[in-house]
């Protein structure tokens, strides 16, 4: 249930310290993310709230190695499952031109190497526009085949046979609430509805039984009923498989429903963090207070339950 934190083991699943991401020339650096530290424990759902432009998506992209700008990640240390997941970012923002680009390329390749064993196995993600996040030229069966090949390789070798993969795909589709799996496998992304596509993305992310799922605005493009179904799937995940989820959203309602802990981001910095209950009832930072009061004014729900 939200509000009750999980039992803390000795080491957190993900321990991100002092992440900074900046873009621009050396004399005009714009920090998109500044000194952000996030911890995710085992079997915990953590919410990351902020308005658009607060840098929450960039934090997620930094964790996944998707930052493409210059200079990109300028500082930060991350430990995921006991091993570092961010390379040493020596402060090279003072360099210019080709030296900077060389350092950045070296950093990116080191980052990719560190993440190689995690992406698709223990660390997966889903994105905001589910229909655009699927390859429009492939049908769903091919997507699931690819996800299975990546996610299950090395784990269970006898499961690499095509019919086994088919069985696993259908099982996973059923677990996210898709009834007629067979017909869905033949369809193309542009033929699906948004909710269906998002559930397929979750299915792809779950095939490999990840430890951490990063969900970047998973419900923004969907209607409210589908939203509720997705949140049910998330809670089921945490309960049945012990997967941790890092949910990035601007919607406090979602965080209220399922998150155990919340980080609030404003303009690239974390302004407040704590258990959901505490944030929603007693927000300290003025921005958090504004957010919470706006939510309750519109929702007209009074105090949250339990």
């Amino acid at each position: 249930m939200p509000g009750r934190g999980p039992v803390k083991t000795t080491e957190p699943l993900l321990n991100l310290q002092n992440l900074s991401v900046a873009y621009g020339a050396a004399d005009q650096l714009q920090y998109v993310v500044r000194d952000v530290s996030i911890k995710v424990e085992n079997s915990e759902i953590v919410g990351l709230i902020g308005e658009s432009g607060s840098g929450k998506t960039t934090t997620a992209h930094a964790l996944l190695g998707l930052i493409e700008g210059i200079p990109g990640i300028t500082a930060g240390e991350g430990v995921f499952l006991g091993a570092p997941c961010l390379p040493q970012a020596n402060l090279y923002i003072q360099q210019k031109g080709s030296a900077l680009k060389k350092r950045r390329i070296a950093y990116q390749s080191a980052h990719k190497k560190l993440l190689k064993s995690h992406l698709g196995h223990t660390l997966t993600s889903i994105f905001q526009e589910p229909k655009s996040a699927l390859n429009p030229f492939w049908n769903i069966g091919k997507h699931l085949l690819e996800a299975a090949k990546i996610g299950l390789s090395g784990k269970m070798d006898e499961d690499s046979r095509p019919d086994q993969i088919q069985a696993i795909s259908l099982r996973t589709l059923a677990s996210v609430g898709i009834a007629e799996g067979e017909s869905v496998l033949k369809q193309y992304p542009h033929q699906l509805s948004g909710g269906l596509a998002q559930r397929i993305m979750i299915a792809m992310a779950l095939l490999c039984r990840p430890r951490l799922l990063i969900a970047d605005e998973p419900t923004t493009a969907l209607d409210v009923t589908t939203q509720a179904k997705l949140l049910q799937i998330f809670t089921k995940l945490r309960k049945e498989r012990g997967t941790s989820i890092l949910i990035i959203t601007h919607d406090i309602g979602i965080v209220r429903e399922i998150a155990d802990r919340v980080y609030v981001m404003l303009k690239g910095e974390i302004v407040e963090q704590g258990p959901t209950h505490q944030i929603l009832t007693a927000p300290q930072h003025p921005y958090t207070q504004k957010l919470v009061s706006a939510f309750y004014r519109f929702a007209d729900l009074g105090e949250p339950n339990d």
């Binding site: 190695g65 992406l119 698709g120 196995h121 993600s125 996040a133 996800a147 990546i150």
Partner: peptide
């Protein structure tokens, strides 16, 4: 720049099959 390539990267997938068709 497309989102499906980004999400393929985030899945750790091989990028060449994704680029092939377009």
């Amino acid at each position: 720049q497309a989102l499906y390539i980004k999400s393929a990267r985030a899945r750790g997938a091989f990028l060449f099959p994704h680029f092939f068709r377009p």
